[in-house]
């Protein structure tokens, strides 16, 4: 029995890290939805703002859980729960998983999870790839009327500027949390 417990202690993902990933996945989902609803839908300010918040939170997450596969696991959890609770799309899941894996590899190659700029680069690329996949899916949905796709593309580009701002504000947020003792590493 003791041997069995010892074996389970060597798990790659610790329950503490898994709980942090789950909490952040919920927080990102709720806060972006709240900002979109409170801003009244097609409001360009809130389109930027919700992406700022989502990216900043993602930066905080990768700072809190510095392990290979954190982005992939985050995408997987978000997609599964979106499917179960909010009817998210099943079709984009494989692409998103690949995007998460590519970004985890990028972080690993470009300095590892201890290097701040590698984390920022990984999250930046992840935001870009996830938007590219969503645009690809929307092209499939709106292929009869490509003009609608152009409108969608404009909306996504506006949103992506928010992601770029979010990368900077995420670092700022991490500094504040570190000062407050919430992030210890």
């Amino acid at each position: 029995m003791k041997h069995k417990f010892k074996e389970k202690e060597n798990r790659y993902w610790k329950p503490r890290e898994l709980i942090v990933i789950g909490t952040f996945a919920a927080l990102i989902k709720i806060s972006t939805m709240l900002i979109a609803l409170a801003g009244g839908g097609m409001n360009p300010v809130t389109m930027v703002l919700k992406n700022v918040v989502a990216t900043a939170l993602l930066i905080v997450l990768v700072y809190k859980v510095r392990k290979f596969g954190v982005l992939t696991l985050f995408v997987l959890i978000c997609s599964i729960i979106s499917m179960l609770l909010m009817g998210g799309n099943f079709v984009t899941l494989p692409g998103m998983l690949v995007a998460g894996l590519i970004c985890d590899c990028l972080i690993m190659i470009s300095g590892g999870y201890k290097a701040a700029w590698a984390l920022v680069a990984g999250v930046g690329l992840f935001d870009f790839l996830s938007r590219a996949i969503s645009l690809g899916y929307s092209y499939l949905m709106f292929r009869e009327e490509p003009k609608l796709f152009i409108i969608g593309m404009v909306v996504v580009i506006i949103g992506y500027t928010g992601c770029i701002i979010g990368l900077g504000s995420g670092i700022f947020l991490v500094k504040e949390f570190r000062h407050a003792g919430i992030i210890r590493e």
Binding site: R11, Y12, W13, P15, L18, I19, I21, G22, T23, A25, A26, L27, K29, I30, L73, L76, I77, C78, I80, I81, L84, L85
Partner: peptide, 29 residues
Amino acid sequence: ILTSLKSFCLPLFIYLPGVVMVRFIPSFI
């Protein structure tokens, strides 16, 4: 939904964050 998640026999690294997320969404609201 939690029971369905369990019935899929998902590994702990998917099941635990999933459950946390499902449980936290109402409390965050």
